[in-house]
Design a protein around this nucleic acid. Structure first.
Lengths: 232, 232
DNA sequence: GCGCAACCTTGATATTTATCAAGCCTTGGA
DNA sequence: TCCAAGGCTTGATAAATATCAAGGTTGCGC
């Protein structure tokens, strides 16, 4: 794999400040692979052999215990996953499967670790990236502890709406099963939560959601930048 | 503040690999202060001015939204908090208050950031620390999504029991109010959860808990290293 | 075109968790 | 010593959420 093959990877915040030489040497043993839909990429508990970068398609991160299962997040191009396990040389805490035919870049964990030992700019980029991921989970966790299911849904809808240009409607980026699991509820409950939001101008048409009364929905949702903003 | 003043801080995993010069220069503007119990140290949303190190006493991290409040964690000596916000030069995502008379070291955020720019060993130590914190929150989050309140309590009791030498009994390290909030339940519910665990050999005597049937409790709790182990 | 499978919804019901209102200790201060 | 406050428990009740069982729709392969 040569650096020039995937300019979008080189441009990732995580990699853009590395020296060319270090980037090339990290990528030298990496390889690009295409996987079919619904394929298990990694299983929680396995040692972290690779850092994964989603180039095309879509990957679901999920966790299991006691026969229960929960979606922890969705990674879309161009995004990485399982960075912390790779850096600590530990086992994965989450499993991952494709939720679409996907093109994935696999960078051997050993190469990532030696790159950050040798490249101070990369180490700094990792710090920023890890700190962001950490704050992302803290926000998720706060949302789960401080909000009801309906409030979590309302805020998620407002977030998608903003992400998609605030045009009064939005497309759910995944199916409702997964959305329910991400929001820590059952699919049945998600259905009912949508009904609960109807008086607040939320109209569901398959995967398209119309928001007819954003002030009312916002008043219900009480969005909080310290939970909902991606950036801060 | 001179480096020699607080050897236990120098020995923290986060700082032990720094050069003496960089440690000294980072600490040069730091100061040590004693705070009474129940004092608010930081408020979520405020800019991150300092990295905090608990030297003596105890600090509660908590979050608020919509009038609701949740304990996110407890920091005891010698531990740091609010590292990610400091590194990102962002606002705090959590508030902190003392839950005991406490001696706290405050290191100006600017000094921490310039130290990691200049000291590669410190940058690597930060990466390990951040990755650990990140995995810690992921585990918390998994526990909340995959377990019922009673299961969370059962596993927490087993963890404390192990931490304290597995002698068939344990001391709750904080009051039940806070324990309930950490486990994402109300105090009333915690009381009832303890009663639910009575048939599994859990006997409550104030802050002392006796575990009379650990196999039964373990069978109920189904502890999972990918949720409960501190290290992995 | 038909039938199957996956996904979503709905209703009925059960379980879990929260809320409200006392009441009981313990503790610390006047 | 006694009072008051805070923390914990308990019971009754309400609200939130999950489970179970159909049933409807859609899309796809045959």
């Amino acid at each position: 794999m040569r650096p020039s093959d995937l300019p979008e990877v080189r441009d990732l915040r995580l990699f853009s400040t590395m020296s060319d030489a270090n980037f090339a040497s990290m990528m030298q043993a990496a390889y690009l692979q295409t996987f079919p839909n619904q394929l298990d990429l990694i299983t929680e508990g396995d040692p972290a052999d690779f850092l994964y970068v989603v180039i095309e398609g879509c990957v679901e991160l999920y966790a299991q215990s006691n026969g229960r299962s929960a979606t922890m997040g969705i990674v879309r191009p161009v995004g990485t996953f399982i960075l912390a396990a790779v850096l600590k040389d530990a086992v994965y805490l989450m499993s991952a499967r494709t939720c679409d035919k996907s093109k994935i870049l696999l960078i051997p964990a050993e190469n990532v670790r030696s790159a950050f030992e040798n490249d101070a700019a990369f180490a700094r980029a990792i710090i920023v990236e890890l700190a962001s991921c950490y704050r992302g989970v803290v926000k998720e966790h706060k949302g789960l502890k401080l909000r009801s299911a309906v409030e979590r849904l309302a805020n998620r809808l407002l977030r998608y709406h903003d992400d998609q240009g605030a045009k009064g409607q939005l497309e759910l980026p995944h199916d409702k099963r997964r959305l329910a699991s991400m929001l820590a509820m059952t699919p049945e409950n998600l259905s009912r939560a949508f009904k609960t939001l109807k008086p607040y101008g939320v109209e569901v048409d398959g995967g398209t959601i119309h928001l007819k009364d954003i002030p009312a929905l916002t008043k219900l949702a009480k969005p909080n930048p310290l939970i909902d903003d991606r950036a801060t």
